[in-house]
Design a binder for these strands. Structure first.
Lengths: 114, 114
DNA sequence: TCAATATATAATAATATGCTTATATAAAAC
DNA sequence: GTTTTATATAAGCATATTATTATATATTGA
């Protein structure tokens, strides 16, 4: 988080990052899961670069962490993040989205990596 | 809130609105106070139209309410707002900012209306 | 009625954002 | 080693956002 910013300003940065439907859904899905890029591409029916760019913003901010496993990059919620409690409280207000993963499986579109 | 939007999408709209340091501070200050525009102009050292435009966005979304009293427009947090619990939880994560009002009084810059 | 005060609104310009397309990288499979 | 798969990055463009400047409105008080 930038130097010289107040707590409120830092929080505003976090909220702005979560103030995008794709990123907010990514973070909500990561609440209970570790996912690789391909799953998000399927779930959002979005382009790979678009998803990748959203993930990079979240990673650069420290909200999520990235872990390379072979060909795949797995993303997780960073529970050591300075503003994790803010993120946590926001996620608690949102309905569970884990059915998205089941839909992928049912459609047979769940990529084998994940 | 727009039609056809999911709960997560609606929440993203709220977070985007609060993802601006000026608007987030406005809403935090309104947590315990009812304020008119001139106070915000003083506190933020911002232009009157800038503050007015931020307040309009918050009002249009339903996050705050506006009440005309004579020449002045007083703004309050809308506790009947659909996503008030989300707003409330976010504000709980932020440090109290009521000292801002005391600073105005001490500087003698607190406008008489408020 | 006229001037002052408080505020809203409109127009504009600068900047930021998010997507697409194209390309680069890196690991795995053959 | 060449191809395939998964992903990242870069460039470009369209749109959105925010501040400024100028102006309009509405209330108050002389």
């Amino acid at each position: 988080m930038g130097i010289h910013l107040t707590e409120v300003e830092n929080a505003a940065v976090v909220l702005k990052l979560l103030g995008d439907k794709t990123r907010l859904m990514i973070v909500k899905l990561l609440e209970n899961n570790t996912c690789c890029v391909c799953e998000f591409v399927e779930i959002f029916q979005a382009s790979q670069p678009s998803v990748s760019q959203h993930l990079r913003k979240l990673k650069d901010a420290g909200i999520v962490t990235e872990e390379r496993r072979g060909q795949w990059n797995f993303y997780s919620l960073n529970r050591d993040y300075d503003y994790y409690s803010l993120v946590e409280q926001i996620l608690k207000q949102l309905p569970n989205q884990d059915h998205k993963f089941k839909e992928l499986e049912e459609n047979g579109t769940r990529i084998s990596c994940c």
